[in-house]
Design a protein around this nucleic acid. Sequence first.
DNA 1: CGACTTTGACCCGCGC
DNA 2: GCGCGGGTCAAAGTCG
Length: 202
Amino acid sequence: MEGSDQGVGVPSFYVLEVNPPPLPTQMQEVEFPQPVEHVPTHGGRANPSPISGYSFQNSADFSISEKPQEVGTSLEPKDGNDQIISSSKDGANSWWKRSATTEKSKMKVRRKMREPRFCFQTRSDVDVLDDGYKWRKYGQKVVKNSLHPSYYRCTHTNCRVKKRVERLSEDCRMVITTYEGRHTHSPCDDTNSSEHNCFSSF
DNA sequence: CGACTTTGACCCGCGC
DNA sequence: GCGCGGGTCAAAGTCG
């Protein structure tokens, strides 16, 4: 059903930044648009926001701009091919399937899988933006460009979407959320059941 | 009791 | 070829 390759027409990289990037005198406290309090756009989403569960009011506070890459730390699609992945002949989801087998050899195929990414730069006090999906944290590490990015993974059974949340060292309120992959379910049924597939997220 | 977070270790890719 | 940095895993601990 939902084109398994829906991400084709979607830029693999977005940068959503608060309106006045350089923050004038009175920095417009653009708190992250609390997503209609959990209510993940039930079927009627006008704005094709990369984050399926979100409905960005309008571009008044946010601006999604397509950028070549580089926003956080190492989001660069090394080879330039960003999409591919899902159609890799063998290790489509290596990093994920790894959990099925504990053999180290399997680890080899872990990386290299690059899925469509969407990066959002927002200003928020909370790290985990409530986008309607349920995330499980699976790692956190101190890196150079950001304080300590957290790595999240969608808890949905067959969903392999990952999310990285990092705060800028210059502005601890600035949060960069990077989504990688496309949800195979709608935010409504993130818990489990997959009856309503309102729309295929990315 | 189950789900989630934390944290250290491990592995891989890339640059030098 | 080596070292560094980044990303992921998995065990242990915590919380609801």
